[in-house]
Nucleic acid binder design. Structure first.
Length: 559
RNA sequence: UGGGGUGUAGCCAAGUGGCCUAAGGCACCGGAUUUUGAUUCCGGCAUUCGAAGGUUCGAAUCCUUCCACCCCAGCCA
């Protein structure tokens, strides 16, 4: 159940007042790109509201521009909607309504409410006027109905060139609302449509198509974003001037869908513009539409975001009439919250530093049985092997540590989580002076959290047995841009974060991960949440992605 | 500047004349618990609702004026 918001109130009141018996919404993407977080908000709104109020919701492709659309996009959109956890009542395509749409256009012509215009694009711009000056009527506006009918039919038959003629609604060239200045409702396009094929060479425009599609499907509430507020007048004009005696559900009578607008939400440090996304993909700045740094739904999925976390995020940001900019931490909080409860705990070392425990007998090993989740016993236990040589993370050792560093340093003692306490006696450097190995001793009396003398060991670090460790490549992602609002820049490419992807090619993982499942999520204790990469992980090579880090107050202290 | 919208904390966002000396989440700051510097817990965080006037016993909510920001002049959606 999502939260209350003004659209839900409107829908509920419409039912309470008897205006409608049910709510029927639709999610209407154009199949010209991949879905992103902004679409998720619309999906959760439309499907979520229908679910909550026992109504229906269609997935409808608004596919009236053959030049931009493709089945590849449509397929991905269907998958993303399903992945988010929603089921459509009907799968619809505006392109399935082309015949009916054509009929309604003829009806408008017959009523003297539409005419065929021969103005070219440039002339039309001149006649349209400006924001502050009225437009003037095209000479074609006076064309007789019979001639309009004939010309429109010949447009349909393909007797003219692209751009030679358009069909326009006859409304008001002096309207202060620009969308009402005799909008084009049909244009000539000799383009192959991914579904309709080559049947048509005239294609209906959005404003004409959308309202009629809604009416045909019996939609009660047509939610869209704020920039369509001016278009609402045209939406209503079209529907009040055509005749729909019966909709596709067999309902009779005038059932007017109502368009209501809500504000877009933008996420800081991201770009949703399709044009710019295409540029990133084409120029190789990212690996594809599903690059884990992108906030496309396929990218978020590959990154390890769960459908629930995205639904929760959408509920959290709300629905209002105000465009908003959401901080990244809200999204991160949503996925951390979900994964904290559901992810199995494991040990993974991203930057391995070899540690030899000199007083542990050579060739000996033992296993510790540990919980998969600290609070959820139903998630069971697993065994982790321990031996003379282990790896710890380089970040857990400092040659000259500051006071508050509760980890390893020369002469210091830390606890190996679930294991013994070790003390660092020697530090081995290579020729360049870099630390490459630690020599430590362990205290056999410190298993199970105890110490023999009651001393308190503050530091606890994770580790993995060197002889049992799995090799893996671990990819760690950061924000793609260096600025919170990259879209505002002249050239957003210059704002790309050079460190948005860090690859840890020599990561060492605990052996239980060999039985890991693609769909499972893991918490590398003290590090973050990880998943297997859906494309590059294989039986030969383990590849994992960091979904999000754990909250890190130590990182703040360091700063 | 014609038309259409929006303005409540750093970011979202409840609230639609009195129980508002304004919910909740994120962020931030304490403090407790903790074999994850995680989680959890407890506490703090707007005398003020874009500004100024006005109406009213009483206003974030009503009125007036002003200010700021967003959208519209595609044969895109």
């Amino acid at each position: 159940m999502s939260k209350n918001h003004f659209l839900r109130s409107i829908a509920e009141n419409d039912i309470k007042n008897g205006k409608h018996d049910y709510v029927y919404t639709r999610f209407p993407p154009e199949p010209n790109g991949y879905l992103h977080l902004g679409h998720a908000k619309s999906i959760c709104l439309n499907f979520g509201l229908a679910n909550d109020l026992n109504g229906k919701c269609n997935l409808r492709f608004d596919d009236t521009n053959p030049e931009k659309e493709d089945e590849e996009y449509a397929e991905s959109i269907r998958q993303s909607v399903e992945w988010l956890g929603f089921k459509w009542s009907k799968l619809c395509y505006a392109s399935d309504y082309y015949d009916q749409l054509h009929g309604f256009a003829v009806e408008l012509i017959e009523k003297g409410l539409a005419y065929v215009d021969d103005l070219n694009a440039e002339q039309m711009r001149e006649y349209r006027g400006t924001l502050t000056e009225a437009g003037k009527n095209s000479p074609s506006r006076a064309r007789p109905i019979s001639e309009n009918l004939d010309l429109f039919e010949r447009m349909r038959k393909g007797e003219f060139d692209e751009g030679q003629y358009t069909l326009r609604a006859k409304i008001d060239m002096t309207s202060p609302n620009m969308t009402l200045r005799d909008p084009i409702i049909y244009r000539i396009r000799y383009a192959h449509h991914y579904r309709a094929g080559d049947k048509w060479c005239i294609y209906p425009m959005y404003d004409f198509t959308h309202c009629i599609s809604d009416a045909l499907e019996g939609i009660t509430h047509s939610f869209c974003t704020l920039e369509f507020q001016d278009n609402r007048a045209l939406y209503d004009w079209v529907l009040s001037n055509i005749t729909i005696d019966e909709n596709l559900n067999g309902e009779k009578g005038k059932l007017m869908p109502r368009q209501i607008e809500f504000g877009r939400s933008n996420l800081e440090f991201t770009i949703a513009s399709k044009r710019k996304l295409i540029q990133l993909v084409k120029d190789g700045h990212v690996s594809g539409w599903d690059d884990p740094r992108l906030t496309t739904l396929v990218g978020l999925k590959r990154r390890g975001y769960t459908p629930k976390s995205i639904r929760d995020f959408c509920a959290e940001i709300g629905v209002t009439k105000k465009d908003s900019v959401i901080e990244m931490t809200v999204l991160e909080n949503a996925i951390r919250h979900d994964l904290e409860a559901s992810a199995k705990r494991v040990f993974g070392v991203l930057k391995p530093l070899r540690v030899v425990i000199t007083n542990y007998p050579e060739g000996q090993s033992e296993t510790f049985t540990v919980k998969n989740h600290p609070k959820d016993d139903e998630m069971g236990t697993r065994e982790i092997p321990f031996g003379r040589e282990i790896y710890i993370d380089h970040d857990d050792f400092m040659l000259d540590p500051p006071k508050k560093f509760f980890r390893l340093g020369p002469g210091r003692e830390v606890r190996l989580r679930y294991g013994y306490a070790i003390t660092c006696n020697d530090v081995i450097h290579d020729d360049k002076g870099d630390v490459i190995e630690l020599r430590c001793t362990y205290d056999p009396l410190t298993a199970k959290g105890q110490t023999s003398d009651g001393r308190r060991i503050k530091g606890i670090i994770h580790w993995v047995s060197a002889t049992h460790a799995l090799d893996a490549e671990v990819r760690v992602y950061d924000r793609l841009y260096t600025e919170p609002n990259p879209s505002a820049a002249d050239d957003f490419i210059t704002l790309l974060n050079a460190d948005s992807l860090r690859v840890f090619a020599d990561a060492k993982l605990e052996p239980s991960l060999a039985q890991g499942k693609q769909e499972d999520r893991y918490q590398f204790e003290r590090v973050g949440y990880f998943c297997f990469d859906e494309k590059d992980n294989s039986t030969n090579k383990i590849v994992m992605n960091r979904t999000v880090s754990l909250r890190d107050t130590w990182a703040k202290v360091k700063r």
